[in-house]
Design a protein around this nucleic acid. Structure first.
Lengths: 158, 158
DNA sequence: TACGATAGTCAACGTGGTTGACGAAATAGT
DNA sequence: ACTATTTCGTCAACCACGTTGACTATCGTA
């Protein structure tokens, strides 16, 4: 049974996790901007990922992201406006409007994956062998459940 | 020089850091709600912390939080409305409006610190000795800079 | 065929952020 | 002592992201 070390206050842990997340995301977008994607916002990458290679619909996207279909629809609107997503009619169901990643969106997605890999290597090189693996494993243990919930702005604000 | 392990894709790390942060904050607010503070939102705790025991002004708060004075003022308005902050005139400077934590706000702050300590102990008990310390140390190494920037909703969204 | 379920959109609203403009008060400079 | 500048707070307009409720169009089925 651990007891609270005054030098290790509990509130530091969430702050550090947030700072780590933020550092990675900021580094990603700085590099993404250099590589021709300055309009991409942190949220957008997650949305593109959730749309996936096969495309989806706004309602399904909302379910994947843990937000309402209306919110998903509005987010798709914005991504369409900046050229990362496109809409198409579904010939087999006139109610549905397919949402697909454009070539530009796919390029951003591919570069994001590469940049994240490079950033992880940088962390691994700096921290030493096994440390990033251990961090990931520990986080997987403690945070098992709520993975793909990306309603961050509304969740944090309220 | 590390190279990318297909079983350890780089994009998992930020997701796990976010999930860890989110788990802690959700657990905190679930407990806070049980202890009589159901209105407190994730952002609010950080704002109360930034106001501090001595009080501050909207402009200074904005600087501490990394947001504009106008945004800080609006956030203070909302916290005043739910009874966690109060405003008072500064007798030595008629331009300034002092922002102070109310007794209710101080209670929420104190409980938050205790709950975070308990959550950290839970993590330490589950993960084993030294693991949380190591995680904190590693995150401090990698995320050194942008600690107290709490413009999360706008940063993430855009 | 008529009806219930589903997809998408519109409208109104709340929270959190931004910039620009402005008045009032403090401070600095002549 | 009187301007000139700076600073604090606020107002207004706007954007991003989320919510709920209502509505139309379409699909699938009893």
């Amino acid at each position: 049974m651990a007891t609270t070390d005054p030098a290790r206050p509990g509130f530091a842990l969430p702050l550090l996790l947030l700072a780590g997340f933020r550092t990675l995301i900021d580094d990603l977008h700085a590099e993404l901007a250099r590589e021709g994607h300055p309009e991409l916002r942190p949220l957008h990458g997650f949305v593109l990922q959730a749309v996936g290679a096969d495309g989806t619909t706004a309602t399904e996207l909302g379910q994947r992201l843990g937000i309402s279909k209306q919110a998903a629809g509005k987010t798709v609107d914005r991504l369409v406006a900046v050229g990362y997503l496109e809409r198409a009619d579904d010939p087999s169901d006139a109610r549905r409007r397919l949402v697909r990643v454009t070539p530009r969106g796919a390029d951003g997605l591919r570069r994001s994956a590469e940049i994240f890999d490079r950033l992880r290597e940088r962390w691994a090189d700096t921290l030493g062998p096994g440390r990033v693996d251990a961090m990931e494993d520990d986080l997987r243990t403690m945070a098992s459940a709520n993975w793909f919930r990306l309603d961050v702005p509304g969740w944090f604000g309220g």
